Simulated assay, not measured.
Amino acid sequence: MAYRLHLSAPLDAEIRRIAREQVEKAIATLTRDDGDRHEAIHDARKRFKKLRGLLVLAEAGDPARVRAEIHRYRDAGRALSGARDRTALIEALDGLKARFAEEVETPSFEVVRTALELKRDAALEAIGDPEALVGETVERLRGGLTALGGLVLKGGAKRQRAILSGALAKNHRRARRDLAKALRTGAAEDFHDLRKRLKYLAMHLKLASRAWPEALAPLEASADEVAEALGRDHDYAVLRAEIAADSVSFGARADLDVVLALLDRHQSELRDRAAFLAGRLLCDRPEVFAARLEAWMRLAGTHAPDTAPPETPEALRRHAH
């Protein structure tokens, strides 16, 4: 099933359904015998982010339970992050090389890439047995499946719509605040905070997309573009810190200067584009944005109700107690 809400169904039932699908897919990916283990971990971590973006929509309805589950998937992602984060730096360097391929020909990229590969391999050795780590993560996910059964939001449709609208407004408000701070400070960590908020916004627009696909798809695409650009910006910031901490391992200073100069240039391009798109996406006041989206969802669910698949008997038993 798609990562989209059925608009005629109760919010809590839909969150349970979609969350269960994401957890089950993550377990299937991590326990598959064939395929690339690192790609499986990357896919699972993306699902953990989707789970967190979904669960924040219910946070006001059951704060303690929802926060515990958000922390579950945050911690699961961090536990699997070691080798993947190192690989992301190599991908960032490759992206930088591709960006300037028609302007600059230099062996400097290969020198830095070799150093990053050595550090990635050392990180893999330090992790130890990856299968044991994956096994622990799978058990944590199975616990999440059980916990999902208890996610029940009290009140009727009106109350659940208020919970949804409040969550949408909260993320929008924090995104506006983070945008203003990032533009004021220029700090990498502030742009990274903005990235997380825009990633949640993209997820929320996808979840709501049945409300008005033609209107919401371009907004989702813009939010995804901002998140992608600022994700690469964050990779560049981490790469710069890696080089600063151990510059000797990355070759001659002349090679580093070439790479760092191009990194600065591309980072500036990414931030300028992200700030422009984020400014458009966040121009409405949070309450206006949330009320409009919630109204579209409500009207779409009433006018042309979509049919949500019934929950399994096992799931119904879990959240009935």
Rank of each mutant, 00 (worst) to 15 (best):
A9F: 10
P10M: 07
L11G: 09
R16G: 05
A19R: 00
K25D: 15
K25S: 14
A28F: 11
T29A: 15
D34P: 04
D34Y: 11
R37Q: 15
A40P: 01
A44C: 06
K46Y: 06
K49G: 07
L51P: 02
L51N: 01
D62H: 12
D62R: 11
P63T: 03
A64G: 14
A68C: 05
Y73I: 08
D75Q: 13
A88W: 09
E91S: 15
E91N: 14
D94A: 15
G95A: 04
G95P: 09
L96A: 12
A98V: 11
A98D: 14
F100R: 04
E103T: 05
V104E: 09
V112F: 02
V112H: 00
L118Y: 01
K119A: 00
R120D: 05
D121M: 08
A122T: 03
I127R: 15
A132C: 04
E136Y: 06
G144D: 09
L148H: 02
G155V: 11
G155I: 06
S165R: 12
K170G: 06
H172P: 05
D178Y: 10
A180V: 07
A182G: 02
T185V: 08
E189K: 13
L194A: 04
R195M: 12
A202Y: 03
R210E: 09
A211T: 04
E214L: 01
A215N: 05
A215I: 00
A223N: 09
A229F: 11
R232A: 01
R232L: 14
D233A: 15
D235P: 05
A237R: 07
A237L: 14
E242N: 01
D246N: 01
D246P: 00
V248F: 00
F250D: 00
D264G: 15
L270D: 01
R273N: 03
F276D: 11
F276L: 12
G279N: 14
G279C: 14
L281F: 10
C283F: 08
R285M: 11
E287D: 13
F289G: 02
A290L: 12
A290R: 09
L299N: 10
L299Q: 13
T307D: 11
A308T: 07
P313H: 10
A315I: 08
A315N: 04
L316H: 06
A320N: 07
